[in-house]
């Protein structure tokens, strides 16, 4: 099965999978930009990367807030988060 079929087969989990993927990418983006800036010597490059980093931080915050609002992410309640994680894991394990 292809990626999209897998996603479609997840029913109401689809949104959550996409949002989580977005959150993880946004997080990786912030870290990647920080690493790149720490290796930068040219002021012009630093300026561009710094501007992008600020946008990346902003995007991460937006998606984080969205997920918290939707109940996909429980930063304030790790125990609840673990239950959500376990459910998501079950869904993945059921993929044939």
């Amino acid at each position: 099965m292809g990626l999209l079929q897998n996603l479609a087969g997840m029913g109401d989990m689809t949104e959550q999978v996409i949002a989580t993927d977005f959150l993880i990418s946004a997080k990786a983006g912030v870290r990647n930009y920080a690493v790149a800036i720490s290796e930068t010597a040219t002021p012009e490059v630093r300026e561009v990367l710094h501007r992008h980093l600020d946008v990346a931080i902003d995007t991460h915050e937006k998606i984080f807030n969205y997920m918290t609002k939707k109940g996909y992410y429980h930063a304030n309640n790790p125990q609840e988060q673990l239950i959500v994680d376990a459910k998501a894991a079950d869904t993945v394990l059921d993929i044939q």
Binding site: A26, K27, V30, R31, Y33, A34, V35, I37, S38, E39, L53, I57, H60, E61, F64, T68, A75, N76
Partner: peptide, 28 residues
């Protein structure tokens, strides 16, 4: 200084509190 940048950015991706975020963004 390099580690500082990476540490601040990593912390920013893990912290939700708005006040803490603002301070750490300034630090970054």
């Amino acid at each position: 200084a390099k580690s500082g940048i990476k540490n601040c950015a990593t912390a920013l991706t893990e912290i939700a509190d708005p006040e803490a975020r603002k301070e750490i963004h300034n630090m970054l």
